Amino acid sequence: MKRHAVFVYSDQLLSYKFNDSHPFNQKRLQITLDLLKKHHAIHEEDIIQPRIATDEELQLVHDPNFVNAVKMAGQGLLSAEKAEGFGLGTEDTPIFTNMHEASALLVGGTLEAVDQVMGGHALHAINLGGGLHHGFRGKASGFCIYNDSSVAIKYIQEKYKARVLYVDTDAHHGDGVQWTFYDDPEVCTLSIHETGRYLFPGTGNINERGQGKGYGYSFNIPVDAFTEDESWLHSYTTAFREVIEYFRPDVILTQNGADAHYYDPLTHLSSTMKIYKEIPRLAHEMAHKYCEGRWIAVGGGGYDIWRVVPRAWSFIWMAMTDNPNISGRLPREWIDRWQKESPVPLPAEWDDPEGIYKPIPRKGEITEKNENTVDKALFPIRSARPAPTSNGTA
Results as ranks from 00 to 15, higher is better:
residue 121 H to S: 12
residue 189 T to I: 06
residue 140 A to P: 04
residue 318 M to P: 08
residue 344 V to N: 10
residue 292 E to T: 10
residue 332 R to M: 13
residue 347 P to G: 08
residue 101 E to K: 11
residue 275 I to S: 00
residue 350 W to D: 00
residue 178 Q to R: 10
residue 22 H to P: 08
residue 136 F to M: 13
residue 337 R to S: 11
residue 177 V to C: 08
residue 211 Q to C: 13
residue 142 G to V: 06
residue 342 S to W: 00
residue 41 A to S: 13
residue 163 R to M: 09
residue 97 T to H: 14
residue 231 S to F: 01
residue 113 A to Y: 05
residue 238 T to S: 12
residue 80 A to T: 14
residue 355 G to D: 15
residue 160 Y to P: 01
residue 170 D to A: 06
residue 316 I to L: 14
residue 100 H to S: 04
residue 223 V to Q: 00
residue 101 E to A: 14
residue 172 H to G: 03
residue 23 P to L: 01
residue 333 E to R: 06
residue 305 I to H: 05
residue 79 S to W: 01
residue 327 S to W: 05
residue 288 H to G: 09
residue 98 N to P: 07
residue 194 E to W: 02
residue 81 E to I: 13
residue 86 F to S: 02
residue 60 L to P: 05
residue 60 L to R: 07
residue 46 D to N: 11
residue 238 T to E: 14
residue 96 F to N: 05
residue 349 E to R: 10
residue 92 D to E: 13
residue 348 A to W: 11
residue 28 R to D: 02
residue 325 N to I: 13
residue 167 V to W: 05
residue 107 V to K: 06
residue 82 K to T: 15
residue 209 R to S: 13
residue 214 G to F: 05
residue 285 E to W: 07
residue 301 G to K: 10
residue 148 D to G: 05
residue 38 K to M: 06
residue 100 H to F: 08
residue 96 F to K: 14
residue 195 T to G: 13
residue 278 E to L: 09
residue 183 D to L: 08
residue 59 Q to E: 15
residue 313 W to L: 03
residue 299 G to T: 04
residue 2 K to D: 06
residue 55 D to P: 04
residue 361 P to H: 04
residue 41 A to N: 03
residue 302 G to I: 05
residue 141 S to K: 11
residue 214 G to L: 01
residue 1 M to H: 07
residue 35 L to V: 01
residue 205 N to K: 14
residue 356 I to S: 05
residue 235 S to F: 00
residue 233 L to D: 07
residue 216 G to C: 06
residue 227 T to F: 03
residue 280 P to V: 12
residue 389 T to C: 11
residue 160 Y to A: 00
residue 326 I to V: 14
residue 306 W to H: 10
residue 188 C to N: 09
residue 75 Q to L: 14
residue 228 E to Y: 01
residue 176 G to K: 03
residue 221 I to Y: 01
residue 145 I to T: 11
residue 20 D to V: 15
residue 326 I to K: 06
residue 105 L to M: 10
residue 351 D to N: 13
residue 152 A to N: 03
residue 252 I to M: 05
residue 10 S to N: 12
residue 44 E to N: 13
residue 51 R to E: 13
residue 20 D to A: 15
residue 144 C to A: 06
residue 41 A to G: 10
residue 199 L to T: 02
residue 292 E to V: 09
residue 199 L to E: 00
residue 141 S to R: 08
residue 83 A to K: 01
residue 194 E to F: 00
residue 127 N to P: 07
residue 108 G to N: 01
residue 277 K to C: 03
residue 318 M to N: 08
residue 31 I to F: 12
residue 316 I to F: 13
residue 153 I to Y: 02
residue 271 S to G: 14
residue 310 P to Q: 15
residue 186 E to K: 10
residue 61 V to T: 01
residue 21 S to H: 12
residue 313 W to V: 03
residue 183 D to Q: 12
residue 363 K to R: 15
residue 154 K to Y: 09
residue 250 D to I: 02
residue 6 V to Y: 00
residue 138 G to S: 12
